[in-house]
């Protein structure tokens, strides 16, 4: 197992119980979609994995390392192995594309080298290779806030890959994108995971997209896992347990019918 969560619980200082003893295992190279209504704890869950949010109790084990309880320096080394991709891209807007991409290497270089932007030559080469791979090598010196949403998310993906991670934590990658770009981004993430043998946890709102791209789907409701199985088993009944009562036939049929066209929102 690459990642093992056991009894993961998070209670916020306000008293809200966001995660109630979640157990989850992700093998190497598996792409998993995490679905569930807003407020179910999806974001909290992936942030507990790299401890951007400190779990209240339970354990997170990444490739044999217990993440909870690591000291500051060891935690930074652990974070290098987990790339994160954000909903609003979270690029540092006033830095250039290249600087944003190189920021993925911050965990590997010292403070002053990073301050003077002196990165090892092979890091810069890798950055160019990845930017070329996602079709952005002509935009290296553009400032991040000059890019379109799809381009920004690609930069965000490249930044995460620069860390040379084993696991990608992906938080709503398509929520701010139009349907066509959403699919392109999802496809890109999937391809890159396959090329590099990466595991990924993808938080996603859009059930149809999740079904189309991920083989394994985990449903989270009110901080508890209520479904864990292959995408094909995602029936209207299952969706009702995750999200509550609604007419789900349209959502499911949309995926069965088209594989290439944009899903109507």
């Amino acid at each position: 197992m690459l990642l093992t969560l056991s009894g993961l619980t998070k209670r916020y200082p306000t008293g809200d119980l966001a995660l109630k003893g979640v157990n989850l295992e992700v093998p190497k190279g598996q792409v998993m979609a995490l679905i569930g209504p807003s407020g179910a704890g999806k974001s909290t869950l992936i942030r507990c994995v790299n401890r951007l949010v400190e779990p209240t109790s339970g354990s997170v084990v990444l490739d044999g390392t217990e993440i909870t309880g690591l000291g500051a320096a060891a935690l930074r080394r652990a974070r290098r192995r987990m790339g994160m991709i954000f909903q609003e891209y979270a690029l540092v807007e006033r830095l250039t594309v290249m600087e944003n991409v190189l920021s993925g290497r911050l965990g590997y270089v010292g403070f002053w080298s990073s301050w003077f932007r002196r990165f090892p030559r092979r890091d810069v080469e890798e950055a160019f290779r990845l930017l070329h791979r996602v079709g952005l090598d002509h935009m290296v010196d553009k400032r991040a806030d000059a890019l379109s949403g799809g381009q920004r998310q690609r930069v965000g993906i490249v930044r995460a890959l620069m860390q040379d991670p084993q696991l990608l934590l992906v938080d709503e990658p398509t929520a701010s994108l139009d349907p066509k770009t959403s699919r392109q981004i999802m496809r890109l993430i999937l391809e890159l995971c396959e090329e590099r043998g990466l595991a990924a946890i993808i938080n996603i709102h859009d059930v149809a997209l999740a079904q189309q791209f991920a083989r394994r789907i985990v449903g989270l409701r009110a901080g508890e896992i209520v479904f864990d199985g292959p995408a094909t088993e995602l029936t209207p009944e299952v969706l009702t347990t995750i999200y509550g009562e609604e007419d789900w036939s349209q959502t499911i049929r949309a995926v069965e019918e088209d594989e290439e066209e944009a899903v109507p929102a």
């Binding site: 250039t96 290249m98 600087e99 003077f116 030559r121 810069v124 080469e125 290296v140 010196d141």
Partner: peptide
């Protein structure tokens, strides 16, 4: 080559 040519902005 691209990496050699690149300079911090």
């Amino acid at each position: 080559a691209a990496a050699r040519a690149w300079r911090p902005p």
